[in-house]
Simulated assay, not measured.
Amino acid sequence: MDLNEYIIPIIVIACLIVGYVIRVTPALQIARDYIPLIACILGAILGAVIQDVTVEAIIMGAVSGLASTGLNQVFRKTLNLKEGASK
C-alpha cells in the first residue's frame, strides 16, 4: 500500500483550518502546543464520519490530520514565515 492511499484531502484541509484558528486565536493559545495531537484526533473522527467506522477509516483520518501539520510546516519553511507570525 502506498501512503497516498491513506490521505484524504478534505480532512487535510479541515485540520489545516482548525490548526490555523487555534494558532491565531488569543483565547486558544493554551492549546497551541497540542495542534498536532488535535489534528490527529480530529482527523480520526472525521475519517470515521466520512467513511464507515472502521479501523482503516480511523487510521486514514489520523494520517490525514497529521499530514496537515506537516503541510503547514512545509508552507512556513518555504515562505520563511516566523513562528509567531499569523500569516
Score class of each variant (00 low, 15 high):
E56K: 14
I7M: 05
V55L: 13
I45F: 10
C15K: 03
V12D: 06
Y20R: 09
L79F: 14
S64Y: 03
A62L: 04
R76E: 03
A14H: 09
L16F: 13
K82S: 10
A57W: 04
I35N: 01
D33A: 14
G84N: 11
A31R: 10
L79A: 12
L46G: 03
M60P: 00
R76Q: 06
L42N: 03
G61T: 12
L37D: 02
I8G: 04
I41P: 00
G65V: 01
I50K: 09
T69M: 01
A62Y: 02
L42A: 13
Q73R: 13
E56W: 06
C15L: 05
V18S: 05
V12N: 07
K87H: 13
R23V: 01
V49F: 06
G61I: 11
F75I: 12
A67V: 12
Y34Q: 11
I58M: 07
I13Y: 07
T54S: 15
K82W: 01
Q29L: 11
I30T: 15
A57N: 11
N4S: 15
R23Y: 04
N4R: 15
L79C: 07
S64G: 05
M60G: 01
V55E: 05
F75D: 01
R76D: 06
M1S: 13
A39H: 01
A14R: 11
L37A: 15
I8H: 09
G19K: 08
G84C: 02
T54N: 05
I22Y: 04
N72V: 03
G19C: 05
G61S: 06
G61M: 10
D2K: 15
G19E: 04
A39V: 01
D2G: 11
R32V: 04
A14F: 12
L3N: 08
I41H: 02
I8K: 10
T54K: 12
E83W: 14
L42S: 10
G70E: 02
I22Q: 05
G47I: 08
V21D: 08
G19F: 02
L71N: 00
L79Q: 08
G43H: 08
L71V: 09
K87T: 15
E5P: 03
I30E: 06
G47E: 01
L42W: 04
A44E: 00
V21F: 15
S64N: 05
M1H: 09
S68I: 09
L3M: 12
G70D: 02
A14W: 04
I58P: 00
I35C: 01
A48L: 13
I30K: 14
S64C: 02
G65I: 02
L71T: 13
Q29P: 05
I41N: 03
R23A: 11
A44K: 11
N4T: 15
A31G: 01
L16T: 08
C40R: 11
A85L: 07
P26I: 07
S64H: 07
L46T: 10
D2Q: 12
L66D: 00
E83P: 04
A27K: 14
I17C: 12
I22F: 06
L3D: 00
D2L: 10
Q73L: 13
V49G: 00
L46V: 11
G84P: 00
E5V: 11
D52W: 00
A85Q: 13
A39K: 02
L71S: 08
A44Y: 03
L37H: 09
Q29Y: 08
L3P: 06
Q73D: 05
L28A: 10
S64W: 05
K87A: 13
S86M: 09
